[in-house]
Design a protein around this nucleic acid. Structure first.
Lengths: 201, 201, 201, 201
DNA sequence: CATGAATGAGAATTCATTCAT
DNA sequence: TATGAATGAATTCTCATTCAT
């Protein structure tokens, strides 16, 4: 079904396909290897067990997304508000362009299995930390009102934009990028102007 | 372990216990009958199959809750705002008093299995419709501004209060009724006064 | 292959057959159920897992042997020397008559698997204790020299006869009862007379 | 992990380690190559299959032991009794110094697998024969009583000393060479003097 | 020599469901 | 009603061995 080279990749592709459409336990390793056109043993040659495969996929998903996002993110933008807005827009577009990754991540986050829960949490937090460190790097802090605590300002700003994005996601899950992204951009812009008024000198 | 009478009930109790703690596929029929202290066959005597049992429980859960709520709901209250507020409070209190039912419903709503998804959706919509029909019965519409479309007014009001309740639920999942319910009551009251100003003559 | 009734017994018989001829890990549950003519699931309906089946068989083997032996053992015999000799003879005859049980027990005792080792040890010690308690019940101690510690006397006697039996077993494993048992009887008798001279008044 | 040179040796060392600690079937070829730090294929390049590796190790074990023993054995000693005693002492010391080899040989002798049983038996008998031929070479037969059949005399002597050594082995498995070997030496000496009285002129 | 990808039969175990009693 | 024996397909995972590079 797939090209001969790199059957490991064939397994990964097949697994992404299956796991993004069904919850963990509904996908059998048989399904995956059959669909990938490889032997039963090969899956366990490359991945210790089903769980490891699942977690590896999760890692891969975020790596793909973050690579995509941070290759495009303009770090010469020194305004935190704009830079964070750009980050959200890029990430949202990326998720909408990679439907499979996006659905897969949703499935992982619905999973309640203790082991998987634990693994994905630590990984998720780690990826977030790395991303946020980059976003807050070399920010022009000169514009901020000196009478406000900078960390608090950051927090409130980030939380607000995240919330706005969450709400937008819920409403635009199945819509095309062209139609829905501008909506998000406008909403984010609205709040950014609000924050500029509130937090800038 | 349970009384001889009504082994069907023993099965239901045990099933509620298991299904509220674990997702559908993680609970085996063996677990249920063992815990209920009945034979394997009896489960399938009373319930066509595992899925039917699950859906039956879901029905039962909502029936219990709605019976509880509407027995207490004061339908002589002709103000929609107050009546809906009362409904929300009663329902929230009921869910907090029946932790098992509450957790079970959450589990059902996380389930992605096609058949179960379909069945629970139709049932959920049906229960909601019945409830809302009662709530909107014999409302004093004389107080509303005649220049506003009544259906729109209703919608916005209901949506707002539902949203407020959702947020409250997220934050007070594990807290006791005595502590958290007054918080909800106050929040709801705040928005009701807002709507009275906006929508009443 | 077997009669319809009591498929559990069919499994046990088949398992005894297989496990007495091959070590634990070489016998697959497939072999057992195929030979027993039952479905795969039935084995796990009756026995939690392969290990439990194995241990159950071990229990069964000793129960069978001890029942056989103690039904025939003459407890009116008050002379410890004779009674213990009778016990050894009966047990040895029993083991030679039940080749399968005998071989099975040997296989179990060769097994090095941690779990099985532990289980069989506790069970073995327990069976031994029960047996020895019966053997030492109501013994006429009046014949023994009062200047010798009775427990020491017992110990030395038992150890000696056990050792003699072990040596005989090694040499007569594959021989018929008629030929080999008299050899053992004679050897035991020889030592008993030795002990009578040494330990009796 | 190991030096580059002679990866075959690395496999052998690792295999000895694994096979001396666990029975044949419990050791996987993966374990061996992982521990040896070599590739899967190399094991099957050097050894036809797992069984061949096992038998090769068995050969190697005895070769090592016999080389060690016969390099030290004083063949100028013309007294059979002393020479055989020396042989036993040297072999026992050697086995105690090479715990891994010793444990490995025990494991092999516990193995019941038909093929392995057959191979190890022929090899074991062969090694014994070679050893005994050397031991009985150039013995001064002039000291023996001419009225006794020499072969019978040899047999009884060898069997006795072997038996004494077996019993000693059972009791001193886990003890140090310094403590336990002198015990064996004394016991052997005792029987040798007995045989001198009985079999010499 | 050396690698490690690839195979596929076979292992133990699970589980919803049926059915004779 | 009530039991629990019986089924058998499906699941995850193991492992010796082969082979192209």
């Amino acid at each position: 079904m797939k090209k001969d080279k790199n059957l490991r990749h064939a397994i990964i592709l097949s697994a992404f396909k299956q796991f993004s459409a069904q919850p963990y336990h509904k996908v059998s390793t048989n399904q995956i290897v059959d669909d990938a056109g490889v032997s039963k043993g090969l899956l366990f040659h490359y991945f210790k067990d089903k769980k490891t495969l699942y977690i590896t996929l999760y890692d891969l998903a975020w790596k793909t997304i973050f690579k995509d996002v941070f290759e495009q993110l303009d770090l010469s933008q020194k305004c935190l508000f704009r830079r964070f807005r750009d980050y959200i827009i890029l990430k949202s577009r990326c998720l909408q362009n990679h439907k499979t990754l996006s659905l897969f991540i949703k499935q992982v986050h619905l999973n309640q299995d203790a082991d998987i829960l634990k693994e994905r949490s630590t990984r998720y937090l780690n990826y977030q930390e790395v991303a946020y460190r980059k976003i807050f790097e070399n920010i022009d802090t000169g514009l901020f009102r000196p009478d406000l605590n900078l960390q608090d300002t950051y927090k409130i700003f980030v939380w607000t934009l995240q919330r706005v994005t969450n709400e937008w996601e819920k409403q635009h899950t199945n819509q095309s990028v062209e139609h829905s992204l501008p909506v998000l951009e406008r909403e984010l812009e609205y709040y950014i102007q609000f924050f500029e008024k509130a937090f800038y000198l």
